[in-house]
């Protein structure tokens, strides 16, 4: 190791090779996780379907062709039509756009809130008690009744401000976001508490790293795995909660398709046309599953101890 002769060729080699971007290593490891790759491919497919798809597809999601109602799958309507003759495939794509958008934004909001509360509570002792009691308070709130009350109270006002669709979107996203950050906060707090007693955090303090950079450089990267897990679970619960709200008829307006609303509308015809329930149900399940796989692969790829194995 200290032999100068052995060092010489290595030095020449290194001067030509600056530190490699860590994200390339992460991608290399991610590629080896087959489930994660499938998940990523499927998720990209879903995203493309719901963003580009409606532009290419001939039918509009709200176009009513009353003579073609309740049709089975055909070339013109791959998933059939509903009771008003609207094309199910177009409605699936339009609905997916809302569901995925709600899932991602609500998850991001819940994650930021949860991580912030967890890190502050874990790292700064004096905030620990108050913040954790606040978390307990939120955990004790029943989610669905709260959302229902929220929708009833604020729907009109937000509709007036942002229009009916964006208004209800903001309402649902904030509603889901502020009622689902607590598990993340608790997990993050626990990990931060354990982590800040580790010697490398002490070493960073002895170097003189201020708390904010100590958190961003040493704490956050090391609590990435629990955050990642809550993120993937968060997307799933957000999509499902939105579906539940739409299913209860309190989400988006009735003519505005989301996966949950499609499910809700289709249950009346469950006996005659089960396909209409299956498609949105499958879409929700597979999206959630793909996100879980991506999260799993990402968590492994971000851990250098697992990387390269």
């Amino acid at each position: 190791m200290t032999d100068p002769a052995a060092n010489a060729p290595a030095e020449a080699l290194v001067t030509a090779r600056p530190p490699r971007n860590q994200w390339l290593d992460v991608w290399d490891q991610f590629k080896t996780h087959r489930g994660a790759l499938f998940g990523l491919a499927f998720f990209v497919f879903i995203i493309l379907m719901v963003t580009v798809g409606p532009l290419l597809w001939t039918y509009d999601a709200t176009f009513i062709d009353i003579r073609a109602r309740n049709q089975g799958p055909s070339l013109a309507h791959p998933m059939g039509t509903d009771q008003l003759g609207r094309d199910m495939f177009a409605r699936m794509m339009a609905g997916g756009r809302v569901s995925v958008a709600v899932g991602l934004t609500a998850m991001a909001l819940a994650l930021m809130l949860g991580t912030f509360v967890g890190v502050v509570a874990g790292f700064f002792r004096k905030f620990d008690g108050p913040l954790m009691r606040l978390t307990d308070l939120f955990l004790a709130l029943p989610l669905l009744p709260l959302l229902l009350v929220g929708v009833l109270l604020f729907r009109e006002r937000l509709n007036g401000l942002f229009g009916p669709e964006l208004g209800i979107f903001i309402l649902i996203v904030t509603g889901i976001g502020i009622t689902s950050w607590m598990p993340t906060a608790r997990i993050v707090r626990g990990d931060v508490l354990a982590l800040k007693e580790r010697e490398f955090v002490l070493a960073a303090r002895s170097i003189g790293t201020p708390p904010r950079r100590l958190i961003s450089r040493h704490i956050l990267p090391n609590i990435l795995s629990p955050i990642m897990v809550s993120a993937t679970l968060g997307i799933a619960t957000a999509i499902i909660t939105e579906s539940a709200l739409s299913f209860l008829g309190l989400g988006f307006p009735p003519d505005f398709p989301t996966w949950g609303r499609l499910l809700f509308d289709a249950t009346d015809y469950l006996q005659q046309y089960p396909g209409r329930v299956i498609w949105p149900g499958l879409a929700i399940s597979f999206t959630v599953l793909s996100v879980n796989f991506i999260g799993d692969g990402l968590r492994d790829a971000l851990d250098p101890r697992i990387r390269g194995r």
């Binding site: 960073a204 170097i207 790293t209």
Partner: peptide, 21 residues
Amino acid sequence: QASLNPRMTLASIIGEPLREH
């Protein structure tokens, strides 16, 4: 083992004081 951040490369561990000061 415990005094080195497992998520940082050797260059960034040794370079941390330089970045700070």
